[in-house]
Amino acid sequence: MIRFQGVTKVYPTSARPALDDASVEIEKGEFVFLVGQSGSGKSTFLRLVLKEEKPTRGQIWVAGKDLSRLSHWKVPALRRQIGTVFQDFRLLPNKTVHENVAFALEVIGKPRHTVAKVVPEVLDLVGLAGKEDRMPDELSGGEQQRVAIARAFVNRPMILIADEPTGNLDPTTSVGIMRLLDRINRTGTTVVMATHDSHIVDSMRRRVIELDQGHVTRDQSRGVYGYAR
């Protein structure tokens, strides 16, 4: 589903590569944690998957497509197959829960009757049934993240990318979010989650890829966050 082959990314403003000759293969339906310290290359990895950045060297395949051969106008089609969730939720503050989720469908031109049918379904899935008309600032952090997940998943993407989705949440709420991501993974969606949260990684026992200064230093199925450090 996602394949990196000898990928190096050097930003123009930095001498050290953010990602250095990284090779990773993630299969369809996997749940993968991306761990490592700040600046280890996790975010760069995710941005490369979304083709928000181009690799300096190496090749990347996402959903069967060679990103270096993907023309500019096909990037939106790629991104429709990838849902994205961030630490800071990124909801539109002047839209209701329902409108926030519907927005993701409207901007890719889905007809109104589809939006009307699909949005309540996904809101039900993430456990926000009955809160459709709330504004984001009336919700708790965990609920806001659920809205963001609903928005990322409403188009049934093949891949869900989560960049520190629990970074702003307390441990109990985080567990709820992880259950939700796990449930989404069980529908066949590949989930790639960058995180700092050792408890979550240790309790989930899923594949762990560790990055350190741009290098892949560990790739372990059913792994833990780190060796006792």
Binding site: P76, L92, F103, A104, V107
Partner: peptide, 17 residues
């Protein structure tokens, strides 16, 4: 920029953005 950022993320085409 919030709206357009999300639009790009969910794969809206140039025409929509």
């Amino acid at each position: 920029r919030r709206e357009t950022g999300i639009m790009r993320l969910v794969g809206a085409s140039d025409l929509y953005i």
